[in-house]
Simulated scan of single mutants.
Amino acid sequence: MDYYQILEVTRDADVATIKRKYKELAQKWHPSLHADNRSEAITKYREVTEAYEVLSQARYRVIYDQYGITGLKKGASNERGEKVGGDYQFISDPDEVFRDAFGRNPFTEFFDFSQVTPSEAKGIFTEFAQMSIPPSKEKAKPVIHDLACSLEELYLGATRRVDYEKQILQADGITTKTEKETATIHIKKGMKLGDEVVFPGVGNVAQNEIQGDVIFRITEKKHPLFKRKDSDLIYTANVTLGQALLGTIVKVTTLDKRILSIPVNEIIHPGYTQIVKGEGMPMHQAPPSTSSLAFSPLPTASSSTSPSPKAKESKKGDLIIRFEITFPEDLTEKQKELVAEAGL
C-alpha cells in the first residue's frame, strides 16, 4: 500500500494539497454512491481515509517516509538501534475523519441522506466497522538452525555468536528480502540434545503475517572420552588383567579439567561398572532458553523457574565408569606357574 499513490499526490505534496485530494477522493468513493459495488467502494474509501490520516500528520508521515508501512505499524530500528514507530493502526470511522477535517459528512452538500433507510444506513456503518478491524494474522514459520555444542560447552555453559538469515518486508510492505543477522546465544549448563534457545518475534515476516521466531536447536558433538546419557557421563577405562584382579586406581580428567583418582578395590569382571555420584552433567531443569540478539535492544531473558546457581551446581548426574580388560597375548613359564599356584 502506497499512501501517496492512493491520494494521487507526489511525495513532496504539502498538507493543503493532501487535504484537497482527500476530499475529492472521499466524495468519489463514498459507498452511498456505489450500490452496485459497495464492497469495492468501502475498501477504496477506507484506503483514502487511512492515507490522509497518515500523510496529514507529521509524526506519522515522517516515520512512513523513512521506514514504510511496516515501520509505521510494527516499528523499526533507527541508526542508533532505538525503536521508532509501531504505534499506528487504522481503526477510525472514515466519516468521522472527514467531519474532523471539514466539519461535515462528505456528502451532505449534494447527497440527500433522508432518502437512506435506517437499515441501509446501518448496513453501511456495519461494513465500515468490519473494514476497520485489522484481519487476523498467522505467525510466520520460525527460522530453525542446529547449534552443535561440545560436551565442555554444555557442562560449563558458554556464549556463542551465530550468523543466520531471515526474510523481512521491504519498505513497500509487500515484497521481502533476505537479511543477515547475528544472534548472541547463551548456552545454559546442562542443556542437552533437542533443547532450544528461542528468540521470539525476530524471525521471518511477510505481508499479513506476525513476525516469527528464531530457534537454535542444541545438538551434541562427539567427545573423545565421554558419552552422555541424559545427565550421566559414561567413561571407559582400559585396565590390564592384573589390575582387574588385584585392584587399581583410575584417573579421569573431567570436563572442567579436574583430575579424579578413583580407587577400584573389587575384581573387575566383564560388564562391571563403578559409579561416581555427582560427577556427571549439570541437570538443566529450566524451560527453553530465550536470549537477546546482537542487533536488537531486547534484554537477555532469564527464567523465573530456573534454580539458583548454587542449586544448579549441587544437582548433577553421575559418572559411570565401564572397563575394558586387556588380556596378555602370551605368558612366560614362570607366569603360568604362578597362575596355576593361585588356582586361577
Results as ranks from 00 to 15, higher is better:
116 V>N: 09
162 V>I: 12
27 Q>R: 10
83 K>M: 12
29 W>S: 07
2 D>C: 03
195 D>R: 13
219 T>E: 13
166 K>L: 07
35 A>E: 14
219 T>G: 07
35 A>S: 13
64 Y>D: 03
237 A>W: 14
324 E>V: 14
69 I>C: 03
289 S>P: 02
198 V>K: 03
221 K>A: 12
244 A>E: 14
164 Y>Q: 04
93 D>L: 10
224 P>N: 10
11 R>L: 02
202 V>Y: 02
79 E>K: 07
306 S>A: 15
311 A>N: 13
305 T>M: 08
109 E>S: 13
309 P>W: 11
169 L>M: 01
322 R>K: 15
158 A>P: 08
205 V>T: 00
212 G>S: 04
221 K>I: 13
71 G>A: 04
128 F>D: 02
57 Q>H: 08
211 Q>M: 01
331 L>S: 11
205 V>A: 01
260 L>R: 10
119 S>T: 15
116 V>Y: 08
134 P>H: 08
129 A>F: 05
239 V>P: 14
229 K>M: 11
122 K>M: 11
294 A>S: 10
54 V>L: 07
105 N>L: 09
84 V>I: 09
13 A>W: 09
317 G>E: 08
54 V>Y: 06
61 R>M: 00
192 K>A: 07
155 Y>V: 01
142 P>T: 08
31 P>H: 06
133 I>Q: 13
287 P>Q: 02
131 M>G: 13
160 R>W: 07
11 R>W: 00
173 G>V: 06
17 T>D: 07
101 A>I: 12
2 D>L: 02
42 I>A: 03
143 V>Q: 05
42 I>V: 15
283 M>S: 04
208 N>S: 02
288 P>C: 03
231 S>E: 14
311 A>T: 14
79 E>T: 06
270 P>V: 01
201 G>S: 04
258 R>F: 11
252 V>R: 15
191 M>G: 02
21 K>T: 11
46 R>Q: 04
197 V>S: 03
42 I>N: 09
58 A>T: 02
81 G>V: 12
77 S>N: 00
175 T>M: 00
65 D>A: 01
118 P>D: 11
185 I>M: 05
66 Q>C: 03
128 F>S: 05
109 E>I: 10
279 E>D: 05
30 H>V: 06
220 E>I: 15
334 K>L: 11
166 K>D: 04
219 T>W: 12
258 R>H: 12
241 L>S: 14
90 F>K: 05
